[in-house]
Design a protein around this nucleic acid. Structure first.
Lengths: 326, 326
DNA sequence: CTGAAAGCGCTTACAG
DNA sequence: CTGAAAGCGCTTACAG
């Protein structure tokens, strides 16, 4: 079913059908009616491929995430959806699982002109080739940063936030503060580790220990915590760079017969719903996840509308929310 | 940058360039090299819109979910991704939030020929018009069912599973078993409620109480449980139709100063990671989420390859996993 | 207000 | 093994 058939059915030209489809106001009422009738009768659906090929516009944006199952990620995506929708854009989600092949495959949607722009929450230092694949197509990074300033991004000041957590734990008398970090391919992971280490250093805390979780899952957090607890000297506080990891860490601590927070305090990061669902409830850094997502869309749309606009780095406010776990 | 320019650069016809792009083996080695060189030099990326318009094939499938933040949903999607990838398909995720407008908008990707088929985990009884929008495009429902047998689907026997849970609780001496259900627009919600009620009836349990959660979140589960606990006669067991709801219910029970499972037993549904992360760990019905996702892709691909193939209803195995909460 | 025609960037019989 | 040409289904100046 094409525009041609509708034109024939309605007894007008394809141009007129197209005008009706695009709400052009220059169509005579009678013709409009006939076209509309033909469309209804034949259950016609416009072919978006053809339209987008012709107009070079899709009003779709691609969101690439490494793990949609991570609640922080899901919350950011929610913000992205809201703002996109408000501006007449639709979002397509691509779950890369941090897999290079899958990321590449997802990016062909951008290079192949299926979408108008891309928002990534993935680490791209791992795969510089992908940056070249994106080329100068509209792109913003969200809750993650490029090393260079070539691409717009939005997030929080990770160094500050990490410093705040560690200082806060030290103020409470914790002596042996450990870090459960994520893959250092992520810039945010490197920044938070920098914050952690700087406070360990300025406070002259002798204990320092970092374990890396392979992914942002409770299972990975639990495994990392088990490694920390198995060491000769045990930490009396654990700072995990995500709530999910922290939830796993709490499990590990309890299974080792220790108490949270008495024996080991735990602080998470993100401020997801999960923080309130687990026992004890989790002290965590709240990120303005919805706003981060919203802002990312804002930056992207200005880039789409004006490709020459300058890149921006937006830092949002965060806060530490103390609960029972630390 | 188009195939035309590559052709000019390489000194061949567009047909030859296209053949190289599609790995046709009939291209002379020398010409292939020249084309490849031109492509590399100009950083050419094929326009997928044009290709898909021409071939009427995208090797993309759309997955419509109502709430990707629900871990069961995320797990099914993971299975879908794996199986799709194995078959050379890419998946596009569309988070409808059960919103009609957004669902409709997502479906234009199908009707607009951007994708070859669709897998839905959404309730469509709410929006029969969407079913007509899909028309006879390849479609399978996943962990949810149409009333009629017109569309292929894969899931578990929800009536049986619900009956099993309630019988099991009754066997353990629970007298007042309540149900926290989801929106009855979902067929699975109606089926589980039917299972629940049938056992209440055959066991001649006098207490019966159903509360509905507005969405599959812990917050909604907590609110529903609070309503149950506020009633004149309090339940001594709660069966929630999702682990997320159950997690919220546990919170509500504890906040009311009661113990799980001593005062109120809690059973969930889905068998997500969450069940092991919360305290007490959750007794739940395990659904084979990955396999459900995988199977859905299998059904869809046979439908894509052979539009005349008959619709199927696949029921997978499930099991009750007892843990501390009941 | 309307239609004929060009063109978006590909693929693919067809002829050579 | 290769190229000229048609065509996928749209939109949009352009002329009337």
């Amino acid at each position: 079913m094409s525009i041609q058939k509708i034109a024939r059915l309605a007894g007008v030209s394809v141009a007129t059908v197209s005008r009706v489809l695009n709400n052009s106001d220059t169509v005579k009422a009678k013709n409009r009616e006939r076209v509309l009738a033909a469309i209804a009768e034949s259950n016609y659906q416009p072919n978006l491929l053809a339209r987008q090929l012709r107009t070079a516009r899709s009003y779709m944006i691609l969101v690439m995430v490494s793990n949609i199952a991570n609640p922080f990620c899901a919350a950011v995506v929610k913000g992205i959806e809201e703002e996109a929708e408000k501006n007449g854009y639709r979002i397509l989600l691509c779950n890369s699982g941090s897999d290079i092949e899958r990321s590449r495959s997802g990016l062909t949607l951008l290079s192949g002109k299926i979408v108008d722009g891309i928002i990534t929450m993935d680490a791209f230092s791992k795969l510089p080739e992908l940056a070249t694949l994106i080329g100068d197509a509209p792109w913003v990074q969200c809750a993650e940063y490029a090393d260079s300033g070539a691409v717009s991004c939005v997030g929080i000041n990770d160094v500050d936030a990490a410093q705040h957590v560690v200082s806060w734990l030290a103020d409470k008398g914790r002596q042996r503060i450990a870090l459960i970090n994520h893959d250092l391919h992520y810039k945010y992971a490197r920044l938070r580790e920098r914050g952690y280490k700087s406070v360990i250093h300025t406070r002259e805390l002798v204990y320092q220990s970092v374990e890396y979780a392979s992914e942002l899952s409770a299972a990975a957090g639990k495994a990392a915590a088990e490694r920390l607890l198995a060491a000769e000297t045990r930490p009396d506080a654990i700072f995990a760079v995500s709530d999910t990891l922290a939830a796993g860490a709490i499990r590990a601590i309890e299974q080792a017969g220790l108490r949270v927070p008495e024996d080991v305090a735990v602080v998470g990061f993100d401020g997801t719903d999960l923080a309130e669902m687990i026992t004890p409830q989790l002290t965590t850094i709240e990120q303005p996840s919805h706003e981060i997502g919203r802002k990312a869309v804002g930056l992207l749309l200005t880039k789409i509308d004006n490709p020459d606009s300058s890149t921006e780095r937006v830092m949002m406010a965060w806060q530490l929310t103390p609960r029972a776990s630390a």
